[in-house]
Amino acid sequence: MKKSVLLCAAAVMVMLLALSGCGNNNSSNASNQDQTKNQKADKTLNITATDFKFNKQTYTVPANKNVKINFESKEGVHGLGITGTKVNIENKGSEIVKLKPGTYHVHCTIPCGNGHGDMKAKIIAQ
């Protein structure tokens, strides 16, 4: 009995130590996004979502510049995710990002119904 209590307590301690390592990591990583919440935007990109589509298939932004992305769901509840970044705006909001040159895939982050898998667009940073 004492042995199982000790094993259980040890397992809880190991889990707590492992979880304490989780959280915000401010070190640089391979992400193509530079979060710049306190900086001014050089350009604003407005993206809206309606049932199962974004308002455009392709968006173009300047590379290596601060771009403020404004997102709003006009029909239904949708989210905005950009592959290769930490962008995840749900329903309505904005973020400032700096994208390296390339093509980024945009997708809905909230399961919104039968057309959810078809909610795709792209951002070209050039």
Rank of each mutant, 00 (worst) to 15 (best):
Leu7Tyr: 10
Ala9Met: 10
Ala9Leu: 14
Ala11Phe: 15
Ala11Gln: 10
Ala11Arg: 10
Ala11His: 10
Met13Arg: 01
Met13Gln: 07
Val14Ile: 12
Val14Ser: 08
Val14Gln: 08
Val14Trp: 06
Met15Lys: 00
Leu16Ala: 13
Leu16Met: 13
Leu16Gln: 09
Leu17Thr: 14
Leu17Gly: 15
Leu17Ile: 10
Leu17Asn: 14
Leu17Arg: 07
Ala18Pro: 01
Leu19Tyr: 12
Leu19Trp: 08
Ser20Met: 07
Ser20Gln: 11
Gly21Thr: 08
Cys22Ser: 12
Gly23Phe: 01
Gly23Glu: 07
Asn24Ser: 15
Asn25Leu: 01
Asn26Ala: 13
Ser27Leu: 07
Ser27Thr: 13
Ser28Ala: 13
Asn29His: 07
Asn29Gly: 15
Ala30Asn: 15
Ala30Met: 10
Asn32Thr: 15
Gln35Val: 15
Thr36Cys: 13
Thr36Leu: 09
Gln39Ala: 14
Gln39Thr: 10
Lys40Asp: 15
Lys40His: 08
Lys40Gly: 14
Ala41Asn: 06
Asp42Val: 00
Asp42His: 02
Asp42Leu: 00
Lys43Ala: 14
Lys43Met: 15
Lys43Pro: 04
Thr44Glu: 14
Asn46Thr: 14
Ile47Val: 12
Ile47Arg: 09
Ile47Trp: 05
Thr50Val: 08
Asp51Trp: 10
Phe52Pro: 02
Phe54Gln: 03
Phe54Ser: 00
Phe54Leu: 07
Phe54Pro: 00
Lys56Met: 05
Thr58Ser: 10
Val61Met: 01
Pro62Arg: 06
Ala63Asn: 08
Ala63Leu: 03
Lys65Ser: 09
Lys65Gln: 14
Asn66Leu: 06
Asn66Cys: 06
Val67Leu: 03
Ile69Val: 13
Ile69Leu: 01
Asn70Val: 11
Phe71Lys: 08
Phe71Ala: 01
Phe71Gly: 01
Phe71Ile: 08
Glu72Cys: 05
Ser73Arg: 08
Ser73Pro: 02
Lys74Thr: 07
Lys74His: 00
Lys74Met: 05
Glu75Ser: 06
Gly76Glu: 04
His78Val: 03
Gly79Asp: 01
Gly79Cys: 03
Gly79Arg: 02
Gly81Ser: 07
Gly81Lys: 03
Ile82Tyr: 06
Ile82Gln: 05
Thr83Cys: 00
Thr83Gly: 00
Gly84Glu: 07
Gly84His: 08
Thr85Leu: 04
Lys86Ser: 15
Lys86Asp: 15
Asn88Gly: 03
Asn88Leu: 12
Asn91His: 11
Asn91Gln: 15
Asn91Ser: 11
Gly93Gln: 12
Ser94Tyr: 09
Glu95Met: 11
Glu95Thr: 15
Ile96Gln: 10
Lys98Met: 08
Pro101Gln: 08
Gly102Cys: 11
Thr103Glu: 13
Thr103Ser: 11
Thr103Gln: 10
Val106Asp: 03
His107Pro: 03
His107Ser: 14
Cys108Thr: 00
Cys108Ala: 02
Thr109Trp: 02
Pro111Phe: 07
Cys112Leu: 01
Gly113Asn: 04
Asn114Met: 12
Asn114Asp: 13
Asn114Arg: 09
Gly115Leu: 02
His116Arg: 03
Gly117Ile: 11
